[in-house]
Amino acid sequence: MTDITNTPAAEHEAQLGDYFALLKPRVMQLVVFTAVVGMLAAPASVHPVIGFASILFVAIGAGASGALNMWWDADIDAVMRRTAKRPIPAGKVQPGEALALGVALSGLSVMMLALSANLLAAGMLLFTILFYAVVYSMWLKRATPQNIVIGGAAGAFPPVIGWIIATGSFSVEAWLMFALIFMWTPPHFWALALFMRSDYDDAKVPMLTVTHGRPATRRHILAYTVLLAVLAVGTGFTAIGGYIYLSFAVVLNVLFLIGAYRIWQRDEEMSEEDNYKVERQFFRLSLYYLFLHFGAILIEATLRPYGLGGWS
């Protein structure tokens, strides 16, 4: 009789939670939140069931692209401290399983979104998955220091998809929400790259910190933050903005600009002295920054039917 506990498969048998971790739940939260805001900010109503189902399929699609990313990047994930505990490098899930899960969930999510919402939304979801898995993960990430800049587009599409779920078409406001995430991504990740010192060097990922050095990265953070601030405050004067959004945007962007300026003013010696305190603060602020901007857009959209939101 065979003792099942001695088989390698039994020792490394993955749990449901391990497969769930392949879907990058934290990234999924951001995708769900921004897609919901995009859907609710749109000037069209969606049946709650259809809205819920559509957002669920967008989340599954985002998770699928995360699984494909983990399958492709398993080698560098194993080297980087931040990602070494992911299911594949930790030996909990086999790479082939991650690939199968990613492909299956991609197909399922796109087909189901086409049925629940419309073909344009499904097409955009498919484009987003391919952009993240193929353009970013397989091509740009290991090829250019602009990986984060262009790859950031993948994370910026969800509010556009949410908008299309509601309206069935594109609009300037949807692209403004896209631009907000697109411009936010580089300073957010470059700040992380500054204080996760050796991770990207060890994995030989050509992050800006590795290819152009840390002073250049600090300059880039400031430049992108200035452009982001103009965009974020400017969005306040459009149809998705209003007094509430503008108040949030002004305060948050002043704080973000101060943070970026302080990062620019510092050198490695100063940063090492206080263990990258300013860079860590900036990174933490960047998380609140995006959440609160989209939260403000959501508040404006929620109040609009009562004649309170927006500029009217």
């Binding site: 009789m1 099942i4 506990t5 039994a10 048998e13 993955a14 749990q15 449901l16």
Partner: peptide
């Protein structure tokens, strides 16, 4: 001793119930 219900069965059951 051979137990009818091994810890592995419990884990598998949990996974199967989740998928179900």
């Amino acid at each position: 001793s051979i137990r009818a219900e091994h810890e592995l069965h419990g884990r598998r059951k949990g996974r199967n119930v989740g998928v179900g």
